[in-house]
Nucleic acid binder design. Structure first.
Lengths: 350, 350
DNA sequence: GGAGGTTACGTTCAACGTAACGATC
DNA sequence: GATCGTTACGTTGAACGTAACCTCC
């Protein structure tokens, strides 16, 4: 069994069981992958993938488990590489973020700007994700970090770091019935209007629906989107009362809309960073977390990821709406890596 | 980076940094290992091992971490192999047990006999271990399972399965002052005599010492051993009052000695099986656990090992001294493996 | 000078890609 | 007949072992 065989298997699986496509991705010939797969199956003594004659049609039950284990192996190898890159003080690499649109649009820009200033050759890739969706397959997608919002207690698997808290705000066009309130909008008032809010709030177990049903009320949705900016568009178009994260509000929105706090009974949301358990985290990924949540301790994070401790995280601070006004975010002093960096040529004498 | 390189690194480390010795173990030439190590170090960009000129003198700090990660990789690969062997219904393989002498001598014989009957080609290797020693490096030694005793709450790392409980018994020669008691020996009486007991009970945080000091008493040791049979020898020689696990008592001992229960204030001991977290467990290892602790659920164990659940284990039963009298232990019905076994030639159609 | 690690070199075999083939839709 | 996987085969290069070399006790 070789790493190459395992990587081929995963490539084939990730290419939706198309060997030719997987071969392209791996920059190898198709027969080569075919062969590696066969070798692996021969060694294990059973089929991993099911065949319809000559085409691959699925994964055997045992294959599922093999794939899970194979993923662990290649992740572990990636960890060694990442660790070495940290030791070398390498400042290049990939950073694959899976994040809801709201963070990508309203939280990450200044933060990533600072990060890229520090690591000019860093390659950040932002993968969009539904506001609250895909909590299960958290970090199995190979990404380095996932950002999620929760209002309840269901934290997805992996190492979950509470970054900051934020509140939802009510958004109505000037001249709307609620516009003259000048105080938090009560749950009852929310229930009386058609709402325009996040897709994820529509689920009956969402914090919004639960807060309303706890008060004996029920939400009525005019329209929902995954994207706070789209929500604004529909509020502007008069479809209903908007309910968005304060993160998404910019100065111009306060000009155009009337923005009111929501009933305090509507729970705060928490932004979490989810790190894959056991994988070594690159220094720049920790830097990103530091920028998002200065209250977190880097060593605590490392210990949590490698499983050697289960720290009690500090309560996250409230997000300040106009991040830029508070000054450009700063990076902690370097190096943050847990080990002393060795210049490559140094000969280590005992 | 290849698996071979990682394996070479570990072989060198495990051969106490002697490449030549490691080469012998790996059935390869010494320059080959030397080369693999160099390739790995070149790829990582820093030294893993420290050199005094041409001899290897130690491990760099970063190297320690690389070794830790490398161990994880090769363990994970071993897991794939073990899983495949389970799927194939393979009944051959190694089972490396690390166990205190008492279990090896008094608990395992009938159990392993049954196991070997079921798996005639199984290769069991028993590694001796101090009665309570080496709790940290639990399963890092590459073994499949570790048996330990605890009387307190300090359970070593890994997946700890409570197998059974046992009590300590007081052992005195016929004619000894305590011999006519015919009732449990009180703590005060124990403290008045020189004791002959397990090495591990000598530690000031042992359950024996704690029980005595809680009663304002202090133990006096005449002699201690890791081996219950040695303890009997010294009791026979009149060195003091013996204190041994009931497991270690055989019919002949009741003839020769006077055996009395110890004060109930002396806590019961629990026998634990420690499995390495995350490693796939071979079916025969689970069978062994079943024989030792029929109350444990096989699927619970699998879930605990792969990290997908953290079951509440049932309270272990009390060990019965004369195991053989209760009948030969029986194995659960087969197959216990979590997956359907595939005959090797079967073509899986989707 | 011996134990133990590195360098040099020739050989071998494993892995790759091209091309031909087969099967399935 | 187009798509996709397998088999066949020739070539190349990576990895191994032997032997020579170095170097520190």
């Amino acid at each position: 069994m070789t790493l190459k065989e395992l990587r081929c298997l995963l490539a084939i699986v990730d290419a939706e069981l198309n060997i030719s496509a997987a071969a392209e991705i791996m920059h190898a010939s198709q027969p080569s992958l075919s062969r590696h797969l066969k070798l692996l199956e021969d060694e294990l003594g059973f089929q991993i993938l099911m065949r319809h004659g000559r085409s691959i049609s699925g994964i055997t039950p045992a294959g599922q488990e093999v794939i899970r284990l194979a993923r662990r192996v290649v992740n572990d190898v990636a960890s060694i590489r990442a660790y070495a890159a940290n030791v070398r003080g390498e400042e290049t690499g990939d950073l694959v973020l899976t994040t809801p649109q709201t963070y990508a649009r309203h939280v990450l820009p200044p933060v990533l700007s600072t990060l890229i200033q520090r690591y000019p050759r860093l390659n950040v890739r932002i993968q969009n994700m539904g506001e609250g969706a895909a909590p299960e397959r958290a970090c199995d997608n190979g990404g380095d970090m996932m950002l999620v919002s929760t209002a309840g207690d269901r934290v997805p698997p992996g190492v979950a770091l509470p970054l900051f808290r934020w509140k939802r705000m009510v958004l109505v066009p000037r001249g709307h019935a609620l516009a003259r309130l000048d105080r938090p909008v009560a749950l009852g008032e929310l229930a009386r209007h058609a709402l325009v809010t996040y897709e994820s709030s529509r689920r009956s177990d969402s914090s919004l629906c639960r807060a309303l049903s706890d008060a004996g009320l029920r939400a009525r949705f005019a329209c929902s989107a995954e994207d706070a900016d789209l929500i604004k568009v529909y509020v502007r178009a008069g479809l209903g009362v908007g309910l968005v994260g304060e993160l998404a509000l910019e100065p111009a929105d306060h000009q155009e809309f009337v923005v009111l706090p929501a009933d305090p009974a509507l729970p705060e949301c928490v932004a979490w960073a989810i790190l894959p358990t056991g994988r070594v985290v690159r220094d720049y990924a920790l830097d990103l977390i530091q920028l998002l949540a200065p209250q977190l301790d880097v060593d605590d994070i490392r210990r949590a990821v490698d499983g050697s401790a289960r720290p009690a995280w500090p309560r996250p601070r409230l997000w300040q709406s106009d991040y830029e006004d508070v000054g450009t975010p700063v990076l902690p002093s370097r190096p943050i890596s847990g080990v002393t960096r060795l210049p490559m040529q140094t000969t280590y004498l005992g």
